[in-house]
Computed example of a mutant assay.
Amino acid sequence: MIDTPRIRRTPPVMPRPERPTPSRLIDLAARIGGTCSSDAEVTGITVSSNDLAPGDVFVAIRGLNRHGAEFAETAAENGASAILTDAEGAEIARGSGLPTLVVDDPRGVLSDAAMAVYRTGPDDDIPLLLATTGTNGKTSVTHLLEGMLTQIGVVAGASTSAERVVAGERVVAGLTSPEPSELHALIARMREREVEAFAVEVSAQAVTRRRVEGVIWDVMGFTNLTHEHFDDYGDMETYYQAKAPLFRSDRSKRAVISLDSTPGERIAAEADIPVTTIATLGIATLDAYARADWKVEVTSEAQSGTGFRLTGPDGRVLSTTVPVIGAHMAANAGLGIVMMCEAGYDWDRIRAAL
């Protein structure tokens, strides 16, 4: 007999829609290819027992040491409508009394299931999705994007390693890149709050751990690639290959790629989507700087911030200041501005605000 862990019931901590549209478990089974005979009504989905709300599908996945299905009885007590798990988990959860949707790979179908429950797939009515990846600068670019979008009058949202932001409402983050259940609940919440654009920090782990499968980003930004995270990926090539899928047409519509690090040139060359490049004088090689579509040049550095000039195609020039010291912050701000242009925001509107 399994000793079921008990947890203290706490209110949901992740942003989620306040007025969810109910779904039927049997319809979800048909969508993801699972086995289920129940017509139970579901309004949410989660992998965390600490973040389970009444009406949720509790997704029970085998971990390194335990199976999530060991928490099924607690999930039932907390109002779960059903459990999504594998055959092993279904057997463990039998005593919970919850309707069970059985699939071969719960982790593999989690993104599709979350999109179905929250209606946040590529063909649904969702905010503009602006993502940033790279070793350094992801959080800064995402934070700057949310601030600059707000500055030009756009209702914006953000997801960084530090926080989740929905139209000015801020919640402390858990994972750098949220699990699919959290990500799609967040998108659905943004739709309710009439968020127009959502800036997201996307790590290599989010790709290899399948947290962003099925999402098609409107603009994907790339900062740099340096010799870090080898504890996860072992070597530079493996790390590079973890990032590279984000620049393919089944993941993103277009990209803005910084040439400030050498891997940026390879990313730009191998991407099968429209690419715009940017480089920073003093960080990029002179050759990369000369070839970039957009150029960042630092014009002043003071305690109050870093002044820079952004020069682009067709004679476009913007001079502004980012309120943080350092050429790298000017590079991050420049990348964010070009991402806004690639997303379709008017250049004159951006220049007037910044």
Rank of each mutant, 00 (worst) to 15 (best):
M236G: 12
H227N: 14
F247E: 00
T223Y: 04
A242L: 01
A255H: 09
K243D: 00
G234K: 07
A242P: 00
E228V: 14
H229E: 04
S249D: 11
P245K: 02
Y233P: 05
S258A: 13
L259H: 05
L259D: 00
H227C: 09
T223D: 00
D235T: 10
R248Q: 15
D231S: 04
M236R: 08
Y239M: 12
R254N: 11
S258M: 07
S258I: 05
S258L: 07
Y233R: 07
A244Y: 00
Y239L: 08
Q241P: 03
D235S: 11
T223A: 05
L246M: 13
T223I: 10
L225V: 00
H229I: 12
G234M: 06
V256I: 07
T238Y: 08
V256F: 02
S249V: 14
L259A: 03
L225W: 01
E228I: 06
K243C: 02
Y239Q: 14
S252I: 10
P245A: 07
A242N: 03
A244D: 07
P245R: 05
M236I: 14
S258V: 03
L259N: 02
N224S: 09
E228D: 15
F247I: 04
L225E: 00
L225H: 01
A242T: 00
D232I: 01
H229F: 09
R248C: 08
A255E: 10
E228G: 11
Y240H: 15
R251A: 01
A255N: 14
M236P: 08
M236K: 09
A255F: 09
R251Y: 00
S249R: 13
Y233Q: 11
A255V: 07
V256T: 13
D250Q: 08
A255D: 04
H229T: 13
N224A: 03
G234C: 10
E237Q: 14
E237F: 08
D235H: 12
L246Q: 06
S258R: 02
F230V: 06
S252C: 09
G234Y: 04
Y233H: 15
D235Y: 10
S258Y: 06
T238E: 15
D232E: 14
T238L: 08
D235A: 14
T238V: 11
Q241C: 03
P245Y: 02
D232N: 13
T238H: 10
M236V: 11
M236F: 15
N224R: 05
D232Q: 13
Q241A: 15
D250C: 06
L225G: 04
S252N: 05
A255C: 09
G234N: 12
A244G: 04
Q241D: 15
F247Q: 02
Y239D: 04
S258T: 06
A255G: 09
T238F: 06
Y240S: 12
T226Y: 03
D235K: 10
D250M: 02
